[in-house]
Design a protein around this nucleic acid. Structure first.
Lengths: 125, 125
DNA sequence: CAGCTATATCGATGATTGTCAATGTATGTG
DNA sequence: CACATACATTGACAATCATCGATATAGCTG
C-alpha cells in the first residue's frame, strides 16, 4: 500500500465551501500572500527584470553625487535616448528612482530606502 | 550664462577611443555592473516578476515541512496544472526552488539561501 | 497486463514588452 | 523671434510570455 499524506486535492472534484477550500490549502502551514499583494510585489520585480534597467540603477547609484541625467546614460547602455527615457520611467513608476528636473536636464537618483524595501518584499514572502 | 557640469556626452558626436569612452561614463563614481552580470541578475528577477510565481514561493515556504507538490498548488492559484508546472520549472531554473521526485509526486521546496542570495543581487548593485 | 494518477511537455494563442524612428514639449541662447 | 538642446511621448514592430487544451511519461494498483 502506498501512502501519501500531503496532498488532499487529488482525485475527483471535491465539493467544498469557500471557507473549507481556504483552510484546505494550508495544512498547519503559515498563511501565504494573497493575489493582490502578489501583484503589487510582482510589479516591482517586473521593473528589475531587465538587464538594461539593472544597469541604469547601478550607474545612477555609482554616479558622482548619486544622480545622473539621461545624456549620461545613453552611451554606456548603447541604447537610444527614447529607450532610456522609457526604462527610467518604469523605474520611477516602480518607486525605485526619483526624477528631478533642473533646467533642461532631468536628474535621476535612487529613492532612499527603495532597495531595502524591495529586499523586504522577498524576505517576507 | 547657463552652466552644466555633469554631462559631457552632449553636443556633436565626440571622437573617443574605447578606453576614453569607458572612462568617460563614470566621472569619479563607482564602477557599475557590466552587461553580462546584468543579464544574469535580470534572469532571476524575471522569475520573480509574476504574481503567481510569487504566490508559489510563498505557499511553498509556508507549507508544512517546507515543501509542497503540484496538486497542492493548482487550487489556491486557480490555474491549470500545466501552467503551474510551467511556473515551477521557471523557479527551479532560476535556482529558487528545489524539485524532488518521490514516487508519483514532485515535491518543491525553497533552495536554502536562495532568498538571501537574491537580495544580495540588489544590495550589491 | 490494463487502468489510474501525478506531473511534464508540446503547440497554439492572446497579451505584454523592448526597441526604434518620428514627433512633441520645454528650456536656454543669440 | 529663430534656433539648438535635453527629454518625453507616440506609433509601430518583432520578440517574449502566460495560459490553456491535448498529449506524453512515469509510477502505482489490482
Amino acid at each position: 500500500m502506498y501512502v501519501h499524506n500531503g496532498c488532499m486535492n487529488s482525485g475527483q472534484t471535491l465539493e467544498l465551501t469557500a471557507v473549507e477550500a481556504e483552510a484546505c490549502c494550508e495544512p498547519s502551514g503559515q498563511p501565504s500572500i494573497d493575489d493582490y499583494e502578489a501583484q503589487l510585489r510582482a510589479s516591482v520585480f517586473k521593473a528589475l527584470a531587465d538587464p538594461n534597467r539593472l544597469r541604469l540603477l547601478s550607474i545612477v547609484k555609482g554616479s558622482e553625487g548619486g544622480e545622473a541625467c539621461v545624456c549620461d546614460l545613453t552611451e554606456p547602455l548603447n541604447l537610444g535616448q527614447p529607450t532610456v527615457s522609457h526604462h527610467l520611467k518604469i523605474l520611477v513608476d516602480a518607486g525605485l528612482l526619483h526624477r528631478e528636473k533642473r533646467g533642461t536636464w532631468a536628474y535621476y537618483s535612487l529613492v532612499p530606502g527603495a532597495i531595502e524595501r524591495t529586499t523586504g518584499l522577498l524576505e517576507s514572502l
